[in-house]
Structure formats: C-alpha cells, structure tokens
Design a protein around this nucleic acid. Structure first.
Lengths: 139, 139
DNA sequence: ACTATTTTGCAAATTTGTCGCAATTTGTTA
DNA sequence: TAACAAATTGCGACAAATTTGCAAAATAGT
C-alpha cells in the first residue's frame, strides 16, 4: 500500500487523461471500500455510460488500480493493494455479505516458493472462502 | 478422493438418469483434466445443446461432481475432489496455461481457524495464482 | 483559447445465460 | 422387449451482460 500513489499520478505516468468517468469510478470504489459489481458501479455513479464503466474497469485493472474478486459465480472489483491493505474475503453464499481478513506472512513465502517451483513469475493471487455466516444459519 | 464414486453411482443414488448429455460432459471433463469454460465444453462435445450444458454443469455442481474454478477473468469448471485430488492452480495470463498443485496441510487448519474467527461455516475455498510462465517470458 | 489527441456516449452487435414447452429419452415393470 | 410414467432434452425466444464502431465531446499542452 503505497500512499504515495494516486489516481492522478498513475494516469499521468501512463500518459492517460484524468476524465470524469475515471474519477467517478475511482471515487465510488474508494468510498464503498468493498467489492462491487459492474452493475453496482454503473448504477451508483451518474452520467457515465455503462460501456465507459466497462472500459474504465478494464483500464484500471491493467494499470493495477483495481483487481477482480470472484465471489460465488460472478466477479466484483475493488481497489487494489496500492490503495487498500492486502486482504482476502469470506463470502456468505446466502446473504452475499463479505468479511475481509488480512493475509498472514507465511502465505507470501509459500506463494513465492510455488512460483519458483513452477517457474512462473507470480503477479497476483486470490484466496477466497465461502460458506454460511452466523446470522444466516440462525434465520 | 473416493475412487468408489462414479458418475453412474452418484446419479443413481440421487434418482437421476444417466443421459447422453450428462455422460458427454462428464467424459469431456475427465479426458481434459483441467478447468474448462462452458463454451469449451459446448464446443468440444457434439449433439448437446448449450442449454443442456448449462443445466448439466449446474446439476453436477449441486451433486458435487464438479466445481468452479476462477482463472483470470471467467470461471471454468473441472471435476471435483471426488474424482481428482484436491488442488489449486497457477494460471499464465499470457498463454492461458494452467499448472496444478496440491494443497499443503497447513491450509486446511488455517481455513478452519478463519471460519471460527468470523463464525462462518466454510463450505469451500479457492486459491488461485496467476503470472507469467517461463516459456512466455522467453518468447 | 487553439489544436491534436484521447476518451466518451450512443446505438448496434455479440455473447452469455435462462426459460417454457413439446418431443424424446430413460428407468421400470409387466 | 413392449409399454408407460417420469425425467430430460433441444429448440426457440428472451433477457442480461459485454463489446465495438464511430461521430461528438472532453482533455492536455501549447
């Protein structure tokens, strides 16, 4: 989490424009602080076409600004580790609630070893759990 | 991995028919031994309608015959732990190749602890890595 | 403010996934 | 193995999600 990075800087560094749609999508993600679907983003911000949301999300992903989280069947997006501490999620398949937890150190080391073993330069990883949360079990 | 289980037995146990589409989908997954998209399955087998592939995949998932794996962007399906040893994948974002690796023991324990901590009854988990494989780096 | 370039909105096309229903296939029993 | 009841399929129509081309608008740098 490099607090020195900002949307503006990343865009500038890549010779890209800071536009209203890009800012809107970014702010919406930053405000909500949790994985969101494209639909939720598109509905949550005004005056931005759905197509632009898709384009922005793809761009942001390539720039490493956001990352995709797979919950259940669909994917959602949230700000990447540059803007939020690295974490993973537990997803309740019943109510859709997500619980975030940070990653223990031994994880990184283990991942590093895996990369070496298979000779793959690991760029990213996901670790998602799903189950039934307490309140859903007591419904 | 219960080698005693077979498609036939599972279907029978659940009072379901062994149909050509179901057999085709199952065989295709068993032959390929790696996560496949619905599209790949639908294109890979003949005389089975797209809708039936979807229905079969959903059924198989409910029966625990297959499970969904999220690689990169989309999800794919592969035979579940009943038919294959429990494992995870490293996915090359360049060429799409997937490398499978088995799960270490400490994982289970760690997952169990997480479930307790958040009071969620964990039903499933995914752990996927992605990066650039050796041959893609040397292209 | 002017201009070259990038990006957007819009509308159309494509892709993906779902659904109802008549026709076919399956499992069973005689 | 013929025949019936139930389960399942294919088909076509939808609905939702995602992509694309392109003219118009916004942006970054003079």
């Amino acid at each position: 989490m490099h607090s020195s990075s900002s949307l503006v800087q990343i865009l500038k560094k890549n010779k890209l424009s800071l536009t209203k749609p890009r800012e809107s999508v970014f702010k919406f993600l930053a405000t909500n602080q949790k994985p969101l679907t494209i639909k939720e983003i598109a509905l949550g911000i005004q005056n931005v076409d759905r197509a632009s949301v898709y384009r922005t999300v793809e761009l942001f992903e390539n720039l490493g600004i956001i990352k995709k989280v797979h919950v259940g069947f669909k994917y959602k997006v949230e700000l990447s580790d540059i803007f939020q501490p690295h974490h993973h999620h537990i997803y309740c398949t019943q109510c859709g609630q997500t619980f975030a937890f940070e990653e223990p150190e031994f994880f990184e080391k283990y991942i590093e070893r895996l990369g070496q073993k298979f000779e793959v330069e690991i760029k990213d990883h996901s670790f998602e759990l799903e189950g039934i949360c307490k309140s859903c079990k007591n419904n």
